[in-house]
Computed example of a mutant assay.
Amino acid sequence: MDFLLLAIAPAMIFVIFIYLKDKIEKEPISFLIKNFFLGAFGSIIITLILGVLFNSIYPLNDEKSVFQQFIKAFVVVALVEEFSKYVIVKYYAQKNKEFNEPFDGIVYALTVSMGFAALENVLYILQYGVSTGITRAFTAVPAHATFGILMGYFMGKAKFSKNRIQLNLLGLLGATIFHGFYNFFLFINFVPGTLIGAILSLIIGTVLSRKAIKKHQKDSNFKI
């Protein structure tokens, strides 16, 4: 059971963090839990299906090919995973009456992302051990949090805009780009110094995420 705590706790810390940041009109905990589990199981299932389909169409077998690792990072991993989260946020959370201010986009997108990250952690720990879980607590989980916040920022704006389609897709695109760069620099670790690129992409994503949170806190529909 200890490995489950290690897998889930980092994701829950971010969910609690964003819940506390929602200072004016907090979301129902029961609905957050539903989004978390949909992120964990719904998004993972979509990811697995799309991943298998892509690999059957265009297998990526050369681990030393920068081009193939680029395609893997941005399409097979980033686009597929972020799309799987996007589907849950758009067709479940965003349509719900509880999604009633721009900040809710960040809350629900991050919650779905953390559900995904938690189950992904469980699978990684089962396959690679506890040390991998510890590493991911300080790398992959915060990365998924930033991707979720960036996606949710635009999806929160989309709910209350005439340009809903464009803003929703911009959220998906932004999360995919940052996810893609983060993974790409990790995937080409056979090139010296590329780890710095992954760290920088995570730092930039974190800075933008903090700005997104502050911006939507100011834009609350319930602010007096």
Rank of each mutant, 00 (worst) to 15 (best):
M1G: 04
D2T: 06
D2E: 10
D2R: 06
F3V: 01
L4I: 00
A7P: 00
A9N: 03
M12A: 12
F14S: 03
I16W: 01
K21E: 14
K21C: 14
D22Q: 09
K23L: 14
E25G: 09
K26L: 14
S30A: 15
S30G: 09
F37L: 12
A40P: 02
G42S: 06
G42R: 02
I44Q: 06
I44N: 02
I45N: 03
I46G: 04
I46Q: 01
T47F: 10
I49G: 05
I49P: 01
S56Q: 13
S65L: 12
F70Q: 06
A73Q: 04
A73R: 02
V75I: 14
V77S: 11
E82S: 11
F83K: 06
S84R: 07
K85D: 11
K97M: 11
P102E: 06
S113A: 15
S113Y: 03
S113P: 03
G115V: 04
F116Q: 04
A117H: 04
A118L: 02
E120W: 04
V122L: 04
L123P: 00
L123E: 01
Y124E: 02
Y124I: 06
Y124L: 10
I125Q: 00
Y128V: 03
S131T: 08
G133S: 05
G133V: 00
I134C: 02
I134G: 02
T135C: 05
A137N: 00
T139M: 08
P142A: 10
H144V: 10
F147S: 03
I149D: 00
I149N: 03
M155G: 04
G156C: 06
G156T: 02
G156N: 01
A158R: 04
K159Y: 06
K159R: 09
N163P: 09
Q166M: 14
Q166S: 15
L167T: 05
L170Q: 07
L170I: 12
G171R: 07
L173P: 03
L173T: 07
G174L: 14
T176L: 11
I177W: 01
F178N: 06
G180D: 08
Y182A: 13
N183C: 11
F184W: 07
N189R: 14
T194L: 14
I196N: 07
I199L: 15
I199D: 10
S201H: 08
S201T: 15
L202E: 08
I204E: 09
T206P: 05
T206L: 15
S209P: 07
S209M: 15
K211R: 13
A212S: 10
H216T: 12
K218R: 13
D219R: 13
N221K: 14
K223M: 15
